[in-house]
Design a protein around this nucleic acid. Structure first.
Lengths: 188, 188
DNA sequence: CGAGGCCTTGACCGCGGTCAATGCCCGTGG
DNA sequence: CCACGGGCATTGACCGCGGTCAAGGCCTCG
């Protein structure tokens, strides 16, 4: 919980009272490696904060498992396109390591928005930051080579390579696992 | 202005009074084809609504002009990554046709947020929708071929092909103008 | 009418995809 | 405790999409 408070403070400082209101609509989850947090086809009604562990959002494209996003500790896990549209998601969430997660009920959070604009603002800013990241990722996909994208990734998050299998990293980067293996071979 | 009101209503209905507050912080702009709305290096401090015309957001990558986004009538024009981070943008905005634009002062809008949570909510929802679009575009860039992306574009916005030059469309799709020309040649 | 921008087309090339064989690591059961 | 099976990474052979460079045609506008 303390971790979550710190995370919030980076975006928008809210009162202790407001924080406690959020606390009241959370539950604590502990998942074992490879367990599923949310299934394909379910509409996203929960916002997760990853306290410890590692997660990914993925979907199936022509039978292939595609990693849409990798989430490290101290980050939110949300299937934004489902939450914001209130539609079933084609994407699923699973943890890649034993993980500790705080689940925030989205519907109750929306209700808090009504009574407390500070909370709405906090989450607005959190999602704005994620929006900006998404935009930057487009630029990267559009005009950087696979090799450049791989280098960017290890520069930003060197630990990912040790914690995530090549195939997940590859599909996250938009290439095949075979190609990623070759790229790594050249590096040395 | 009426158009803007209608646009807002699709996201979140606000009172006439609130709408008038927004109206007060707007100015009307009329630009001629090829005129620049915002220059590279400027921090985005204005949110634009395109009433009539056509605009694009672009930037220079190794001296090449890259179209980041095409904006049709009845849409917002915003350099999100600059507005949300309050940082200079490497991107510029120009209109591709004579255009009528409503400019909303971002700083004054933030002030309105403080006194009127309904307005904050309205814009939150507007930007959430744009966030979702951005996410979907990633999927398209990551796993669709150039040809598929071109087909998606003409399906969604057939008029774009007649109104925008090939080179802008090509860089928007993440390919060269030469490749796009070939793709079109095959189609017939 | 000439200049410049825009689109097309040809020749060539390289990045990354596909298919398949092989090696390696690790968990599970006999 | 070892043997086997399955998942993961590497590597080779081959191919095709899209990039680059360059030439040429066609509009548009001064």
């Amino acid at each position: 919980m303390n971790q979550l408070k710190k995370y919030f403070d980076d975006f928008h400082v809210i009162s202790q009272d407001s924080f406690e209101k959020i606390e009241k609509i959370t539950t604590q989850l502990n998942l074992k490696k490879k367990e599923e947090l949310q299934a394909i086809g379910k509409t996203c009604k929960t916002i997760y904060f990853l306290e410890k562990g590692l997660a990914r959002i993925y979907y199936l494209k022509d039978g292939n498992d595609i990693t849409d996003n990798l989430i490290l500790e101290n980050n939110m896990i949300v299937r934004v396109e489902s939450l914001f549209r209130n539609q079933p998601s084609r994407k699923a969430i699973e943890v890649l390591e034993d993980s500790e997660i705080i689940a925030i009920d989205a519907q109750k959070l929306m209700n808090l928005y009504d009574e407390n604009p500070q909370i709405e603002r906090l989450f607005r800013k959190i999602f704005e930051a994620s929006h900006v990241e998404t935009i930057n990722r487009i630029e990267s996909l559009q005009f950087h080579s696979a090799e450049e994208r791989y280098k960017e990734l290890i520069e930003k998050h060197p630990e990912v390579i040790k914690r995530v299998s090549l195939k997940h990293i590859a599909s996250y980067l938009g290439i095949t696992q075979v190609s990623l293996s070759r790229i790594r071979a050249i590096q040395n």
